[in-house]
């Protein structure tokens, strides 16, 4: 079996999607459309959004993605690390 290749590496910058999905999702609203940094893969799991609708899809990598609070809320010196499925994320190019 070919080893699974993760789409993102630790340190990659990613942006979360902005869609207001019509149903269950595990992308918290406060983290929509935000740019964060991948800190670690967090296992490979079927997308919760699909499972909640009774749809089966291939498992995909989940990542711990760290955000600066200021980027999420406009204030705060802390970070928030959220676990996000691959489908929620797009790469952010450049520094």
């Amino acid at each position: 079996m070919t080893p699974r290749t993760d789409r993102f590496a630790v340190g990659d910058r990613v942006r979360t999607r902005t869609v207001d999905v019509d149903g269950h999702t595990r992308l918290p609203r406060y983290a929509r459309g935000a740019v964060g940094v991948v800190v670690q893969p967090a296992g490979v799991h079927p997308l919760a959004d699909d499972r909640a609708r009774g749809v089966s899809g291939p498992p995909q990598t989940v990542y711990h993605v760290r955000f600066a609070a200021a980027d999420l809320f406009g204030a705060g010196d802390h970070t928030v690390t959220v676990e996000l499925w691959n489908d929620y994320l797009t790469p952010v190019e450049g520094p």
Binding site: P28, A42, G43, A48, V62, T79, T81, V82, E83, L84
Partner: peptide
Amino acid sequence: QVSVWDASAES
């Protein structure tokens, strides 16, 4: 540094 972890998936 304060680090908040949101258990939004399977961990």
